[in-house]
């Protein structure tokens, strides 16, 4: 029997980058991620973490294998369908925040919901709630360049969560943050994971992030070498 709470299923996933010397970034990965998981994907640089996240997020296509999101094979979707799929199902958090510089904090958080065509009341209520959780109500009308890196990343997380996606993909979300900002961000992500039961998958090198993860998947040379909760990863 399949676990009906599985959100993401990766089946024999391969990714090879063609070139003068072809590079196999991911080699036959099989993984299942359940609803509400808070999972860290770890491993040395170049082990395939980002490639794996990109394929799960539909930003990159696998050379072989399948990415199933709630039983839907996203590898079979057209580019336009993928954009729509991402809009309704996936939240993204990038290493360097990537907020829209000409929009205010409030507008950045509301952006995806506006793309979804949600009504104003729904958008306003959700944004107000997230700003409250972020503790940034006083900064809602300022633009990202006036925020610290930590604050910007918190807004980026709020943006990813605003549309209540099935899961959030975060690529090295704390890489550019100091320890206090990292602590605050992790607290926010954990709170949202707990209160809204949103699945989080994040790649990281950061031990503090790993410490908070419920599950740690370790990749090496494009393969899964360890999968489970660990006390410490050396």
């Amino acid at each position: 029997m399949r676990n009906t709470m599985e959100v993401i299923e990766l089946k024999k996933l391969h990714k090879t980058y063609e070139g003068i010397v072809p590079v196999q970034a991911v080699k036959g990965v099989d993984l299942l991620f359940g609803k509400g998981e808070f999972t860290a994907i770890v491993g040395p640089s170049g082990c395939g973490k980002t490639t794996l996240l990109n394929m799960i997020g539909g930003l990159d296509a696998p050379t072989e294998g399948q990415v199933l999101i709630e039983d839907q094979d996203i590898s079979a979707l057209s580019p336009a369908e993928l954009v729509d799929f991402r809009l309704w199902n996936i939240g993204f958090v990038f290493q360097s925040y990537n907020l829209i510089p000409v929009l205010t904090v409030k507008e950045n958080i509301a952006f995806i919901m506006e793309l979804q065509g949600r009504n104003h009341k729904e958008i306003n209520d959700r944004v107000a709630y997230l700003l409250d959780v972020l503790g940034m109500k006083d900064k809602m009308n300022i633009r990202p360049r006036y925020l610290s890196g930590g604050q910007q990343q918190r807004v980026a997380v709020a943006r990813a969560l605003a549309s209540s996606p099935k899961f959030v993909l975060a690529d090295e979300p704390t890489a550019n943050l100091d320890s206090q900002s990292t602590e605050n961000l992790l607290e926010l992500m954990e709170t949202m994971n707990r209160t809204e039961d949103i699945t989080f998958l994040f790649s990281t090198h950061d031990q503090r992030v790993m410490d908070k993860a419920h599950r740690i998947v370790t990749l090496e040379d494009g393969k899964v070498v360890r999968d489970g909760k660990q006390e410490k990863v050396e």
């Binding site: 954009v83 309704w88 939240g91 993204f92 829209i100 952006f111 995806i112 793309l115």
Partner: peptide, 10 residues
């Protein structure tokens, strides 16, 4: 690219 990644159609 970020805008397209998060769901803005081209």
């Amino acid at each position: 690219s970020v805008m397209v990644a998060i769901g803005l159609k081209r």
